[in-house]
Structures are given as structure tokens and as C-alpha cells.
Design a protein around this nucleic acid. Structure first.
Length: 920
DNA sequence: AGCCAACTGTTTTTT
DNA sequence: ACAGTTGGCT
């Protein structure tokens, strides 16, 4: 590959600290990958001395893939590369907290955004929510201000905050929230980083471990780092000694979420011995687009100096870049769809000298400031012409008929009413089930209604597990004998069944989120709480997502926000709806965090409110997504007061020479056969996912593509507790500590945690406690003679297969036998009813992954049953491993083609309620 | 130019 | 829920 002088300098500067300013389309990922390969190659360092942070998990996968590719080609091997850390800061911090020498956080669970808000609301007083005073007067209110409070608790930890300026009531509330998290053993995304920073600063063992291991720190998207993350980076740098940050101050788009562009602007003043390289040649877009983008972004004051040029990899003809006005959104949408039709199939070269191909629907993107508010007319226009599209970010899961029916089901069961809503009758529920067009017969619906009426009677008095929300959901779907194939029968559109199942699966996820927090409520209270959640809050928490599921790349027009589009590119980009108050955004009004804390308590607080400059950077990101065709447009919405005027950005770009404000007369466009752009898509899988595929491919689909979940059980956490205790035993043994039966009580205190057990169920709790101590003691007695032969605990492996499949997993234990055979060990508590054959496949994958990581082959695999003691042992052979690899490859092919068939044996399957056929 | 009632409502990643 | 924008009216 040929590099420009600047790119080459960026790649080869490894002994000094480095700041790379990478403009849009400048080949940033390639340069970072090449630089990392260069470090490995020329410095001869161990891959595990490299830590690279990316902004998203998706970016991490892409970067890793690129590094592996280069190393394989250059060094002829990818051995050991799994030891490198390439991933998000969050992921790295979580690893720090859950790997030796820290054991405390093993039992902690990461709280998702939705669950965090549920927790805050459920414990509205203990979380500090309703005790948080406003600056004027009054307090934050339950349900209404919880998302504000969520923002507040993160800002307090993530921003540079002057606590002296924050009202003491607010400080006390945030402290209450943090102790609530600890009490329930939760980590939210902010706390992960906060605690990791504390550990990095004060845990000497951890500091030594990192100091020994890490040499090179690389931070991508450095402009979107928040102050807390910067503190983590600085602390790591002090231990590692070398840092390279990559970013572009012009593309800072997450400042409203706390990222601070000052980090990149002042980087060279804050770190020693820094070289700066600006890579500014744009290989993506035509000269006209790059010129326009440059003119547009140069109006921002205080930018880092940089040159921006186009390599002219796309030619420009007048008319390729337009800024148009229309009379109404409908007219605007119709024009867009017309343009898509006229360019569909147009001959296109992805790069100079590349083979020509015809443009496909997936080569068109519609980028919006607000999908929720502006996507509708465009979707309607695409629907009218039967053009496939994918929208991301639309609300409306709860507007779909099938989810609406399920919401009525729970509303009916709960009998929930308040000033605004009264519960539906069974006939309304029946009607909603009919309207959902799920292919149900009269008899099936009758059976379902009878089931509901019967269960409803039990709710006020019973606390049976049968009545927990998820159990009842699956039982109800089983009673009406729902099956995916049945749905097509009533509908002509073939996709209807997948969409309905996807939405119903999402509803199962909604229940899981809710029960995660509310599981211990009595059934009597659970239902009304859930009903009010479904009525008031859930609709805003969950986006409609059908369409983006699956592992394939559908040939469809993409409709998304500019934020989502960051890092992507298309031959053709539409940026419509450029109205005043929309783009640049008029901003949000109403109560915000600065009604709770004063502005001057947070340094650089402006950024959190959103400024014109931020909007300008966002628009710059939008236009630089286009390769050749860029169509900006606007139209007034007559009936909306604030939507009648043109965006100042549209006016601005209309002045530029290359931009044409009226469409030139149509020319004939040469069309050839369409072909989707080739992209190597890696397919990341974890072993726990793959396990379900091995059991039944359709079950995999139900769980991971649709989102169906199993009911929560009170004993959940038992196997995990044992597992965590074993991890500590082994890790401490490797350190030379002698572990004996006398440690069991301490291990019990540190690791035994059952998040869902009801306090009333003392019998179960006692039994599990005893089982925990007994199993652990038995294991120590039977195995402590081998504790001096351990090699690794909880070894992370990443298995890369030739066709882009990457399997992630963790090996419980690796040790030697008396005769020095290398053994891969896995522990099963009796509660985990995993089939032995499946476990063997798991260990074969681990054996292969271990070989890829270390070059060493395992001789044996060993499966321990902790309840009964003893272990099964088997010799590892190439034939066994090859047949497992074969199976994974088949799985990959099936996943990519969405060909996930039902298996024969449903007897043990917990998903059979939503699988079995009508006639069985 | 200044006043005021009517109107209106963003973006989302992180295990 | 609330506060900034808009546009009609003085």
C-alpha cells in the first residue's frame, strides 16, 4: 500500500508521543492499524503491551480486523495478537475491575441505561432522586425527572466539577445513589470508569501489573473523550510511557454527552515530547465536496491547524452537489425518492481504477438531525415506490399492533387505573389480538383469553413463580400456540412474520429489563407497576428496531441521524429537512441539569447545552459522509410555527461555487448491473451465544436476533458465585498463596450473591449457602495438590477463523498434570444443565484459541462437576478440533444467510412456547 | 423597537 | 414541565 508523507510519518513515529489529526476520509483506521503493526514488527514487542481505545465496539472490531490482516500479511502470523487490548474504555475498565488482582467486583452486574432509570425510579428516595433540590425551589420528582437525574449523576463523576459550588443537598443525593448501586451490586457505565480510575491510582498490585505489561497506549476518537476518561488515559500513560492520540477537533459531536474538545486542542501542552501530524488528504470525496466542507468548517474559531485536500478519487460534474428548496416535506421526499430511482444502477467506481458497478439501494443514505421528527414523509415516499429502507432511531415499538396487544394483556391482568387510564376489558384484549394479525384462530384466541382470565384471579393473592411476568408471557404465547410460520398465513407480505416476532421478542426484553429491577416485588404490586411502566415510560425507552436485525447486509436505503452516520460513507448522501430550529437545532427546553447545579460549577459547561459551533461541526460530519453525490434540501412545514424558515447552514453552503441551487436538466445516466459494495464483515460471536446455536439454530434466532429471554429464577447467580470463588482461588494460588478449606468462609462472604432471591425464601437461601460452601470445600480438598501446577486463570481468548468469524470466550483454568500435559479446564455447577457434548465443543474452541494466542497445543480437556466432584477428561485430537471448526463455519454461513432452522428435539428447550407448530 | 400570547420540543454510546 | 422562539400587534 502507498502512503502519503504525512501518513508515513504518523505510522513511523513510535518512540515519541504522537498526536494525529485525521481529517474526514483520510484513511485514519488504516494508519492506526499500520502503526500498531509497525510497533509489533520493528520494536519486537509483545502484543499484550499495546492498549488501543476506540469509541464504539463496532470500531474496535473493524480496527482489530485491519490489524490482524496487516500482521498476517507482513509477519505471516496472527499468533499472540489476542493479547492486545483493542476496545472501548468502558470495556477495559470493566476488565480491570473484574480480573486479578481485584476480586471485589466479580459479583457486580453492569446496569444498562433503561435498568438504571428503573432503579432510580423504583428506589426514588434511596437513589436520592426525590431528595435532590432544585436551585429555585422544590425537588426532582419520581418518573418525571429521572432521566435528568441520570444525567446529573454521570456529569458529577465525568465532568470537571467544583463540588464547592454544588448545593449540599445535591451532593448528598448523588452519594446516596452511589451507595444504592453498591448495595445492589450494580455498576453503571460511569461508575465502571470511576472505580477503575480509583484502582489505577491506588491499587499498588494493579499498578505494578500494568506498569510491567503496558508500553503503548493508543486512543482513537480522542476529541470525544470526557474529563473522567482523560484522567484514566493520563494515569495509564504515566504507567505505560507512550501515548498516541488520534482524532479531529472538527468532528466533535458528543459534547452534549460530556466529551470535551479541549482535550485534543490542548493535548500537546499537557503531555511531554509530543509530535503532531495532520493527515489531511481526503481519499473519500470529490474535490467539490471537500472544498465545500472546508469552507464550511473554517468558520469555526479556535480550530487546530490542518490542511484539507481532496485526492479527487471521485470526479465532479455540476449537478452532483445540490442545495435545493421545496414547497412541502411531501414534495421534498418525492424528489429524494425520484433521485434515488434515477441514480439506482448508475455506473460507479468506488475508487479510481476500481471495477465499475451499478449503484444499489444500500449506496444511498438519508441523514437527518432528528429521525423521530423528520423521517416519516421520507419513509412514506419510499414505501409508495416499494424501495427497501432501514430506519434507525424511530420510536414506535409500542405502536406496533402485536406489542400493543401485549401491553393490553398486562394492563388487563393488572387492572391498573389512574386519573387518565382505565383498564381494558377482556373483549378489548381479544380485539387487539385479532388486530395484531398473528395468524391465530378463534379457538386459539379463546384459549388465550380464558388463560388470562384465570391468571388474573390469582394475581391479588398468589406469589407463585408462574405469575412472574416473563414466565406468564411465555406461557401465554404457548397457550395461544403462536408460531412464526403461522403469521404468514394471514398476510401477503412475507416479511410480516419476522417483524412481528422481532417485536414480540423485544417485548420479552422489555419484561427482562423491568423484572431485573422489580423481580422481588410481590406479584400483587408487580403488575400495576409494570402496567404503569408500559403506559407512561416504556414507549420512550425503546426504539422500533425491526429491520436492522440479522447478520447480513440488506440492500436498502439507510435513514439515520448524523450522529449514527459518523465514521460511515456512501456514494450518495441526502441531507434533507434543513430548516431553522432543526439543523442547527433549536436545542432542548424545559428542566435540565442546570436547574439543579449552577453552570459555573462545571468547567466548560457551555458544551453540555449545545452551541452553534457544535451544530456546525455536526453538519460538517454530515456532508463529509458523501463520496460523489450530495443533495441538501429543505422545505417549510406550513402548519408548524417554528418550521417555516430555511436553515442558516443551507443558506451558507448555497453561496459556495461548487454547489448548485437548481437541478440541472436531466442527462441520460449510464446504467449497469447493480452490485453491493464488498465489505469484509466480521461476525463476532461469544461462546455463550454459539452454545445455543449448537443446541438449536432457531433457538439462537429467538434469543439473539429477536430478543426472547428466559424467566428469572431465584437461584440465579449460584453458578456464577462458585465460578468467581474458584477464579480467586486459582489466581491467588498462582501468586503463591496457599488456599485451604479455612478460606471457604471468606470466599463465601466475598462471592456468594443471589440477586433475585426473595428474602422470604429462607429455605432456598440456606440450601444454596450450604451447597456453595460444601462444593467449594470439596473442590479444595480434592484438588489443592494441583494448585502449584496452574498456568492461567480466566484466560481471555479470541479465535479468528478464516471467513471472518471471531469467537470470544474465557477459559476457566489452564494447568499442567503431574506428567506435564497441558490441560484446559472448565467448571460446571450442577445448576448449569449444559449438555456434555456442548461443553466439549466449547473446550475444543478454547484449545484452538489458546493455540492461536500462545502457540502451545493443549493435550487434554477436563470438565469438573462441582456438585458431585471429580472430572471427565479427554485427549485433544486434531480431528475433534477440526470437526468443531467445521461446525462453527457452518454456523457462520447460516447466520449470514439468516438460515436458522428449528431442531427436532424440543423436550428440554425453554423457548418451545414460541416455537412449536400449531398441529403439534 | 418592544411586548406578549401562542407555540413548541435533538442528538445516544458504553457489558 | 418549562422556557426560548416566533410573529402579530402596538
Amino acid at each position: 500500500m502507498n502512503y502519503t508523507d504525512d501518513q508515513r510519518k504518523a505510522i513511523e513515529t513510535v518512540d515519541k508521543n504522537l498526536q494525529i489529526i485525521a481529517c474526514a476520509g483520510s484513511g485514519k483506521t488504516q494508519v492506526i492499524s499500520e502503526r500498531i503493526a509497525h510497533i509489533l514488527d520493528s520494536q519486537g514487542v509483545d502484543p499484550s503491551s499495546i492498549v488501543a481505545f476506540t469509541f464504539t465496539e463496532k470500531a474496535a472490531i473493524e480496527l482489530k480486523d485491519r490489524i490482524y490482516g496487516i500482521c498476517q500479511k507482513r509477519l505471516g502470523t496472527d499468533q499472540g495478537l489476542g493479547g492486545m487490548y483493542v476496545g472501548t474504555i468502558h470495556g477495559y475498565c470493566l476488565n480491570l475491575l473484574q480480573e486479578p488482582p481485584i476480586y471485589k467486583y466479580l459479583k457486580y452486574k453492569v446496569l444498562s441505561d433503561v435498568c438504571q432509570r428503573l432503579l432510580i425510579d423504583r428506589y426514588s428516595k434511596q437513589s436520592g432522586l426525590t431528595e435532590t433540590p432544585l436551585l429555585k425551589d422544590g425537588y426532582l420528582r419520581r418518573w418525571i425527572d429521572s432521566s435528568l437525574y441520570q444525567g446529573l449523576v454521570s456529569i458529577c463523576a465525568e465532568a470537571d466539577v467544583d463540588y464547592d459550588k454544588i448545593p449540599s443537598g445535591v451532593v448528598a443525593s448523588v452519594e446516596k445513589y452511589r451507595s444504592l448501586l453498591h448495595q445492589h451490586k450494580y455498576l453503571d457505565f460511569t461508575t465502571i470508569q470511576m472505580e477503575a480510575l480509583n484502582a489505577l491510582k491506588s491499587h499498588e498490585e494493579l499498578r505494578n501489573k500494568i506498569k510491567e505489561q503496558v508500553r503503548y497506549l493508543i486512543v482513537d476518537e480522542y476529541q470525544d473523550i470526557n474529563p473522567l476518561q482523560e484522567r484514566i488515559i493520563k494515569t495509564l500513560f504515566d504507567l505505560a510511557g507512550n501515548i498516541c492520540v488520534v482524532g479531529d477537533d472538527d468532528q466533535t459531536i458528543y459534547q452534549w454527552r460530556g466529551s470535551d474538545v479541549q482535550n485534543i486542542i490542548t493535548f500537546k501542552d499537557r503531555y511531554p515530547n509530543v509530535d503532531t501530524v495532520s493527515i489531511g488528504l481526503n481519499f473519500r470525496s470529490s474535490g467539490a465536496i471537500v472544498d465545500s466542507a472546508r469552507q464550511f468548517v473554517e468558520k469555526i474559531p479556535n480550530r487546530l491547524p490542518k490542511k484539507m485536500d481532496s485526492s479527487n478519487s471521485q470526479s465532479f460534474e455540476r449537478g452532483d452537489v445540490l442545495a435545493l428548496s421545496f414547497k412541502s416535506p411531501v414534495e421534498e421526499a418525492d424528489w429524494i425518492v425520484g433521485k434515488i430511482e434515477s441514480l439506482h444502477g448508475a455506473a460507479y467506481q468506488d475508487k479510481p481504477h476500481a471495477e465499475e458497478r451499478g449503484l444499489c439501494y444500500s449506496d444511498f443514505a438519508v441523514l437527518l438531525r432528528s429521525v423521530k421528527n423528520d423521517a416519516r414523509p421520507i419513509m412514506d415516499a419510499l414505501d409508495a415506490k416499494d424501495i427497501p429502507y432501514i430506519v434507525s432511531g424511530m420510536d414506535g415499538l409500542f405502536d406496533t399492533p402485536e406489542v400493543n396487544a401485549m401491553r393490553l394483556v398486562y394492563w388487563f391482568l393488572s387492572d391498573y387505573s389512574d386519573g387518565k387510564y382505565t383498564p381494558p376489558s377482556i373483549s378489548q384484549v381479544r380485539k387487539s389480538l385479532v388486530d395484531a394479525r398473528l395468524g391465530l384462530s378463534q379457538e386459539q384466541i379463546d384459549a388465550g383469553c380464558a388463560f388470562l382470565e384465570e391468571k388474573k384471579k390469582l394475581i391479588p393473592t398468589s406469589n407463585s413463580a408462574e405469575l412472574h411476568l416473563q414466565r406468564l408471557y411465555l406461557d401465554f404465547l404457548g397457550t395461544i400456540q403462536l408460531c412464526e410460520e403461522g403469521i404468514d398465513a394471514v398476510s401477503k407480505s412475507t416479511k410480516r412474520s419476522e417483524i412481528a416476532y422481532y417485536n414480540l421478542g423485544k417485548f420479552s426484553t422489555v419484561i427482562s429489563d423491568f423484572e431485573n429491577i422489580y423481580f422481588k416485588s410481590s406479584v400483587r404490586n408487580l403488575y400495576p407497576e409494570f402496567a404503569s411502566f408500559l403506559l407512561y415510560r416504556a414507549p420512550q425507552y425503546y426504539p422500533e428496531g425491526a429491520g436492522e436485525n440479522g447478520y447480513g447486509r440488506p440492500d436498502a436505503v439507510q435513514i439515520m441521524t448524523v450522529h449514527k452516520a459518523k465514521g460511515m460513507q456512501w456514494p450518495t448522501v441526502f441531507i434533507p429537512c434543513l430548516r431553522k430550529n432543526r439543523f442547527p437545532s433549536g436545542g432542548s427546553r424545559g428542566r435540565g441539569i442546570f436547574h439543579v447545579i449552577p453552570c459555573d460549577a462545571v468547567s466548560n459547561a457551555e458544551r453540555l447545552k449545545g452551541t452553534q459551533e457544535d451544530e456546525r461541526r455536526l453538519f460538517y460530519v454530515a456532508i463529509t459522509r458523501a463520496e460523489k453525490y450530495l443533495f441538501c434540501s429543505w422545505s417549510p412545514i406550513e402548519e408548524k410555527r417554528n418550521s417555516k424558515k430555511i436553515s442558516e447552514f443551507q443558506t451558507d453552503i448555497s453561496r459556495y461555487d461548487n454547489i448548485t441551487t437548481a437541478e440541472p436538466p436531466a442527462k441520460s445516466i449510464r446504467k449497469i448491473e447493480g452490485k453491493q459494495r464488498h465489505v469484509d464483515l466480521t461476525l463476532p460471536l461469544t461462546f455463550s451465544e454459539l452454545k445455543y446455536y449448537f443446541e438449536c439454530p432457531y433457538q439462537f434466532k429467538l434469543r439473539f436476533l429477536y430478543g426472547f429471554n428466559e424467566p428469572i429464577q431465584q437461584a440465579m447467580g449460584f453458578g456464577k458465585s462458585l465460578h468467581d470463588a474458584l477464579a480467586e482461588i486459582h489466581a491467588e494460588s498462582i501468586q503463591g498463596t496457599t488456599i485451604t478449606v479455612s478460606d471457604v468462609d471468606r470466599l463465601y462472604e466475598d462471592h456468594f450473591f443471589l440477586p433475585f432471591i426473595s428474602p422470604a425464601n429462607t429455605q432456598l437461601k440456606e440450601n444454596l449457602e450450604k451447597a456453595f460452601k460444601r462444593d467449594l470445600a470439596k473442590y479444595i480438598v480434592e484438588n489443592s495438590n494441583k494448585f502449584d501446577k496452574l498456568e492461567h486463570v480466566e484466560k481471555v481468548i479470541e479465535l479468528n477463523l478464516a471467513n471472518g468469524i471471531v469467537v470470544n470466550g474465557r477459559i476457566d483454568l489452564i494447568r499442567h498434570t503431574e506428567t506435564n500435559e497441558l490441560t484446559i479446564v472448565d467448571f460446571k455447577s450442577d445448576a448449569e444443565a449444559q449438555d456434555v457434548e456442548t461443553t466439549k465443543k466449547q473446550l475444543h474452541i478454547y484449545a484452538l484459541g489458546y493455540k492461536q494466542l500462545t502457540g502451545k497445543s493443549a493435550d487434554l480437556i477436563e470438565i469438573h462437576n462441582l456438585k458431585h466432584g471429580g472430572a471427565d477428561r479427554e485427549v485433544v485430537t486434531d480431528a475433534m478440533i477440526n470437526s468443531t471448526v467445521q461446525l462453527i463455519n457452518e454456523a457462520g454461513a447460516d447466520l449470514r444467510s439468516n438460515h436458522l432452522e428449528k431442531c427436532e428435539d424440543c423436550s428440554k428447550c425453554s423457548m418451545k412456547c414460541v416455537c412449536k407448530h400449531k398441529d403439534k
